[in-house]
Lab assay of single mutants.
Amino acid sequence: MTYKLILNGKTLKGETTTEAVDAATAEKVFKQYANDNGVDGEWTYDDATKTFTVTE
Rank of each mutant, 00 (worst) to 15 (best):
M1D: 14
M1I: 14
M1N: 14
T2G: 05
T2Y: 09
L5R: 00
L5T: 00
L5A: 03
I6L: 07
I6W: 04
I6S: 04
I6E: 04
L7K: 01
L7Y: 13
L7T: 05
L7M: 12
N8R: 11
N8C: 10
G9S: 11
G9Q: 04
G9Y: 06
G9R: 04
G9V: 09
K10N: 11
T11D: 13
T11M: 11
T11H: 15
T11Q: 10
T11L: 12
L12W: 14
L12C: 13
L12R: 10
K13F: 09
K13C: 11
K13P: 05
G14R: 12
G14F: 11
G14W: 15
E15N: 08
E15G: 07
E15M: 13
E15Q: 11
T16E: 06
T17P: 02
T17A: 08
T18W: 07
A20R: 03
A20P: 01
A20S: 06
V21D: 11
V21L: 13
V21C: 10
D22P: 01
D22T: 05
D22Q: 03
A23G: 05
A23Q: 10
A24M: 12
A24R: 10
A24P: 09
T25K: 07
A26C: 02
A26T: 00
A26W: 01
E27L: 14
E27K: 10
E27Q: 10
E27A: 12
K28A: 13
K28Y: 10
V29W: 14
V29H: 12
F30E: 00
F30S: 00
K31C: 05
K31Q: 10
A34H: 01
A34E: 01
N35C: 10
D36R: 09
N37C: 11
N37Y: 15
N37V: 15
N37K: 14
N37E: 08
G38A: 07
G38D: 08
G38H: 08
V39I: 15
V39H: 04
D40K: 14
D40T: 15
D40V: 14
D40H: 15
G41S: 02
G41V: 02
E42S: 10
W43G: 00
W43L: 03
W43S: 00
T44R: 09
T44N: 11
T44Y: 09
Y45A: 01
Y45T: 01
Y45K: 01
D46Q: 05
D46I: 05
D46S: 06
D46T: 05
D47L: 08
A48C: 08
A48Q: 12
A48L: 14
T49R: 06
T49I: 07
K50A: 06
K50L: 12
K50H: 14
K50T: 04
T51M: 04
T51A: 04
F52M: 02
F52A: 00
T53S: 06
T53F: 10
T53C: 08
T55L: 06
T55Q: 07
T55S: 07
T55W: 09
E56K: 04
